[in-house]
């Protein structure tokens, strides 16, 4: 649906050139929600803006829905843009226009008939649950309402792609949830491909199918949300995952680790997917002559798959513990010993 081939975007300043995008290859499938996460200045904004050529790549090609945008004429490009909706962090609504006129704007630009505009705008406003706000002005709306107007406007021309530029970053957590749910609904009901950029891993966890991590203009890691969350490869990805997965070791447990006696060993057991459903720990306790003490843990769901980790203290003979560990390993969960200096 969206293909980036070796896309570079270089900004030339007086004495140096800065690569906002440094050879990006990306393939986004039809109907998926794809998230790009990165710190500010990593290039995610340039990446998003290269999809509808708000920024023109310095080199490389961008293809959307089979059309290579980088090779289109100005007029063809304007037409292609009607297939690409976009919503913004700060909504970018016209303050001088009513909600109705804002949503109608893309249709007015393409010369759609008045009656048709009327029908379509009211349908869209009903969809985003703002039917009663048609005659209001943006400054009379809350942030979440403004974003819903933005979404209705972006959908007006029935695009096949929706670009979301930090769409929830200016919103409070509860409103963020509402907007994300609405985006998911758009994706499911209309089959619209969504590309979003964010610096919040929570957004990725909430609605994305696949994710890419961008750093210094390069995609350093990508995969399904489950893969990246459960097994992040790069330090940056690990940081992002840690920001939403509570795997910090609490201070009291930390103290315990530091004080631990010779026959106490603390392990972190990572549960992935279906394994979470297995009664692994109780089996270990029954089969081996050791005691198990669960110190800390959290299990969450990613794309409907359970995922999490437990911090477990194994107490017993060293030989018995290593046999138990071998058993745990065979259950295909990853297990690692937690040492005092690692925390």
């Amino acid at each position: 649906m969206i293909t980036f081939k070796n896309v570079k975007k270089i900004y030339q300043t007086q004495d140096q050139s800065i690569a906002a995008l440094d050879g990006v290859d990306l393939e986004i499938k039809k109907g998926e929600i794809f998230g790009v996460i990165g710190f500010s200045g990593a290039g995610k904004s340039s990446l998003l803006r290269c999809v509808n050529l708000l920024e023109r790549p310095t080199s490389g090609s961008v293809t959307v829905d089979g059309q290579e945008l980088t090779s289109l004429s100005a007029k063809q490009l304007r037409e292609a843009k009607q297939q690409i909706g976009m919503i913004f962090q700060h909504f970018n609504l016209l303050d001088s226009n009513t909600v109705f006129a804002n949503v109608a704007k893309p249709l007015v630009l393409t010369g759609v008939k008045k009656a048709e505009i009327h029908r379509r705008v009211h349908e869209l406003l009903a969809f985003v649950d703002l039917a009663d706000k048609a005659d209001h002005y943006p400054d009379q709306l809350s942030g979440g309402q403004k974003q819903r107007v933005g979404i209705a406007r972006a959908l007006a021309t029935q695009p096949s792609v929706l670009l979301c530029d930090e769409a929830t970053s200016a919103l409070d957590p509860q409103t963020t949830q509402h907007i994300l749910r609405l985006l998911k609904q758009i994706n499911e009901e209309y089959g619209i491909t969504i590309l979003l950029i964010t610096h919040e891993m929570g957004v990725i966890r909430e609605i994305c199918d696949r994710v890419a991590v961008i750093e210094a203009g390069k995609l350093i890691e990508s995969g399904t949300v489950f893969d990246v969350f459960s097994n992040p490869q790069t330090a940056t990805a690990k940081n992002f995952v840690r920001s939403v997965m509570q795997d910090e070791i609490p201070a009291s447990v930390q103290q315990l680790i530091e004080r631990r006696e010779a026959n106490h060993h603390i392990y972190k057991i990572n549960f992935l997917g279906a394994h979470t459903g297995q009664p692994l720990l109780s089996q270990v306790a029954k089969r081996f002559d050791i005691d198990l003490n669960i110190l800390h843990g959290s299990i969450t769901e990613l794309q409907n798959i359970p995922f999490g980790s437990l911090l477990v203290e194994l107490i017993g003979e060293t030989a018995e513990i290593s046999r138990a560990l071998q058993y745990i390993d065979e259950a295909q969960v990853t297990v690692e010993e937690v040492l005092a200096d690692a925390g």
Binding site: L54, Q82, M86, F88, N92, K105, P106, V108, L109
Partner: peptide, 19 residues
């Protein structure tokens, strides 16, 4: 931002000025 939205919608230069 409003002008960026206009560009994203594929507004012509004249439409951007007048609308």
């Amino acid at each position: 931002g409003v002008l960026e939205a206009a560009k994203a919608m594929g507004a012509t230069p004249l439409q951007t000025i007048f609308r």
